[in-house]
Amino acid sequence: MAQAWFATGPGGIGEWELRDVEVPAPGPGEVTIRIHAAGMNPADVKHSARPGASFPVPLGYEVSGEITAIGPDTAIGSGAARVGDEVLAFRVSGGYATELTIPAEKAFHKPWTLTHPEAANLLLAGATAAELLDRSGAREGDLVLFHAASGAVGVSFLQQARTRGVRVVGTAGPANLDVVRRYGGVAIEYGEGLVERAREAASGAPFVAALDGVGTDEALEASFELVADRQRIITIVRPDRVEPDGIVAIGGMMRASAVFRDGVRGPLVDLAAQGLLEVPVARTYPLNEARSAAEYLMTGHPGGKLALIP
């Protein structure tokens, strides 16, 4: 008997429940994973409380662990696999668990460069960052502005941009400016005078795009001043500004975004295997402390990724 967390109602974290569950044996095209770490993302909380959700909602979208069973004539997303292989998986349903049977194409061999907590947090933030970089249209030598560059998506974006020679000016609070610098960005503090600081950091170069990971009016208004083409102002948190302001929103619940993010999983795993993509982990929690971990996550200042350890 395995254990798994579910949201049992729309009331948020207080309505999460850890239950005993039966894990089905894998059929063709499926694998069963013993989970060593479950990644945590704000989407876990937000999506489980969304209007129209059908409860109970299994929690968790990404995991890292080892294959304990594999269906007949089955390969995983990165190729042939066998029982005992260490893997990570993304866009699963019910990752806050001890064991899980999933479509095999969602699993990829875990890079030896990453621990299980790191691997369990690689792909949701990484795929979001990859889509932002792709939609920005930025090429080698171009300059982009990234709001909230010290967050999980921002840190992944900084590293991916560096592999393509794209330059980044990233905003952060005073305590996190060194995080932006550590991963190759030019760090500027948000707050009054943001536009002027951004222009100074650009040293006369134009910003070809602005990427919004924070959603404040300040960030969006600064983007409007610095980037003329509204289709190159892209947000992951303010879809309500798309129609009135003509900007672009992306998100994992959107079909085009989901297709892109599925397609970029393999390349992101390869970058991590080459040591080009790190995943800072701030804290780990026992699986049975998922509610406490989620409450800390939603403070907005965890200082890195969180993982649940069964």
Rank of each mutant, 00 (worst) to 15 (best):
R162S: 02
T163A: 04
V144P: 06
N121V: 01
G165N: 09
T163F: 01
A130G: 08
R135H: 14
L114R: 06
Q160T: 00
A152V: 04
F157C: 05
T115D: 06
S156E: 00
S156Q: 03
A148S: 09
G154P: 05
L123M: 10
G165V: 03
D142Q: 12
D134F: 07
A149E: 12
D134Y: 11
L114K: 11
L114G: 08
A161C: 12
T128F: 01
Q160R: 02
D142H: 11
N121W: 00
L124F: 11
L123H: 05
L132F: 07
F146T: 04
R162N: 03
G126P: 04
A127E: 02
S150W: 07
E118V: 09
A152Y: 00
P117I: 13
D134E: 13
L132C: 06
N121M: 01
F157L: 12
E131Y: 09
P111L: 11
A152D: 02
G151V: 08
G137S: 13
S150N: 10
R164Y: 01
A130Q: 06
A127N: 05
S150K: 04
G126E: 01
H147Q: 13
S156Y: 00
A129W: 10
L145H: 06
R135F: 05
R139H: 09
H147S: 09
H116E: 14
G154Q: 05
D142A: 13
P111R: 15
P111I: 15
Q159N: 11
S156C: 03
L114W: 10
A130F: 01
L124Y: 05
A161T: 04
G165E: 09
K110H: 14
A119G: 15
K110W: 15
A152F: 01
D134R: 11
Q160F: 02
F157E: 01
V153T: 08
S156L: 00
G141D: 11
L143I: 14
A119D: 14
Q159S: 08
V153P: 01
K110A: 12
P117C: 14
T113A: 13
